[in-house]
Design a protein around this nucleic acid. Structure first.
Lengths: 138, 138
DNA sequence: ATTGACATTTGCCATTTGGCTAATTATAAT
DNA sequence: ATTATAATTAGCCAAATGGCAAATGTCAAT
């Protein structure tokens, strides 16, 4: 008659694996390399990425730097932390609004400025293509 | 011949239990009450307090509010977070060669993170193509 | 097609975590 | 002192976590 913890925590663990994988291949790293850099095992990371296992905070912390995440960022994504403690009134719960992904930032910053500009040029072209394609579909 | 993680993490788990107990009795709460408030079990909390078990992030998160800790505070104490996170990512040039063009940054930041990542994914593809092309040319 | 070098996944296992129940230990109240 | 009652601890167990080794998948070069 005790039953202290019925049901799910409201922990957002959806898609965390995918996100980690996306980040890893974007860098790009193999599972083994990431395992090496983070001091974990490739097999476990593989399972984490395809959501067969949920990573503990210890693992998450080890993954943060090699993947270019801020320390608490992965924790937030994993649902261990509520979204953005320090923020006063921005706080988009879905993490999408006006934030530049730290890894993206880091990578781009290493390119010459013309390349950076070319990249967003390509992006805007792709977006307009996508837009007109969507319109054709009626 | 693999051995990815020998030895201890440099996680500060010393005295965390004592600290939790001090806080609990200071409030004051019994183990059962705290267990009730946090949705955990008194037996486990007892063991945590006398450091027979180390609490997972999930438990820590549940304990934070009833004990009057800030969300990330217990995480820091537990060694899951390094002291003084605060800085949310971005803007710290601490690493990397160049600067990110502010206009580029602004435009990209308005895209969802997947798009941001896709963009640098495309960039890396283009770079590898360029590289191999250059090699073929000699 | 075959080999060889990597990368990923799977099988299996040890360790940890955390809950329930029961036992023990404090704390009052007669 | 002796119960009654509450609080803590200990015994046990199921589930989860994460590592290693072996199997499988992939891909380029022969």
């Amino acid at each position: 008659m005790a039953n202290y913890n019925i049901g799910m925590d409201n922990v957002n663990r959806t898609g965390l694996g995918e996100l980690i994988r996306q980040q890893r291949v974007a860098i790009p790293l193999t599972l083994q390399e990431l395992a090496g850099l983070s001091g974990t095992s490739p097999s476990h990371l593989g399972r984490v990425e395809r959501s067969e296992r949920f990573p503990s905070a210890r693992i998450l912390r080890k993954l943060a730097k090699p993947l270019g995440f801020g320390e608490n960022e992965l924790f937030t994504l994993a649902g261990y932390l509520s979204p953005q403690p320090s923020a006063t009134s921005e706080a988009q719960p879905s993490y999408g609004g006006g934030q530049l992904d730290p890894y993206v930032s880091r990578v781009l910053a290493q390119e010459p400025v013309e390349t950076q500009r070319a990249v967003i040029g390509i992006l805007s072209i792709l977006k307009s293509i996508a837009k007109s394609t969507a319109q054709e579909r009626h």
